[in-house]
């Protein structure tokens, strides 16, 4: 399914791949990244990139896949990841009224929100299930989440623009 094809207007070879393959590769890399950095979500930036590219259907199926994957590999009862991604998307949509969607500061604010949101969610869900998460480790992971999200978004955005096939030019 590799789709190396040539432009008719020039002799340059197009190395872009189908978005499905791009996101599949992203998921595999994300799972391995989560293996090396426990407690941090490496998949979340994909949803923001899809939103910025106005890819609604891709956002929906990626969110569904991420929820199932993250819930499966997690240790809390099903439900926390729905709130996790919903919170992120709500903040993104709300923030677009104030910021340009690809503004780095805006992305950093979303990352900080995710850090705080994770702490609140884990504490809330753990309390509902009568569990006790480790607070020190949780705080450290929240800080990591904020930093990783911001940096990873920049990387994924560049890679998506460079390697995923675009049928239409995205709007800002």
């Amino acid at each position: 399914m590799h789709t190396a094809h040539t432009y008719t207007s020039s002799s340059r070879v197009d190395h872009s791949i189908h978005p499905f393959l791009f996101w599949l590769g992203f998921i595999l890399a994300g799972i391995w990244a989560q293996h090396f950095v426990p407690g941090v979500d490496f998949l979340a930036p994909a949803l923001i990139v899809c939103q910025q590219q106005r890819k609604v259907s891709a956002t929906v199926w990626l969110a569904a896949a991420f929820i199932v994957l993250q819930e499966g590999m997690g240790s809390l009862a099903f439900g926390s990841l729905i709130l996790w991604y919903a919170g992120m998307l709500v903040v993104y949509q709300a923030g677009r009224w104030l910021f340009e969607s690809r503004n780095f500061l805006f992305i950093f604010i979303i990352g900080v929100f995710l850090g705080v949101w994770r702490y609140v969610l884990v504490q809330m869900m753990a309390n509902l299930q009568n569990l006790a998460p480790e607070p020190r480790r949780l705080i450290l992971e929240c800080v990591l989440q904020a930093v990783v999200f911001t940096l990873e978004w920049g990387l994924v955005f560049l890679l998506y623009k460079r390697y995923a096939r675009h049928d239409d030019e995205p709007r800002a």
Binding site: H35, P38, G39, M73, G74, S75, S80, E134
Partner: peptide
């Protein structure tokens, strides 16, 4: 195979 994974991995677990 792995230790804790993902944002819902709040407990000390291995896979």
């Amino acid at each position: 195979i792995a230790h804790r994974l993902g944002p819902a991995g709040a407990l000390d677990t291995v896979l």
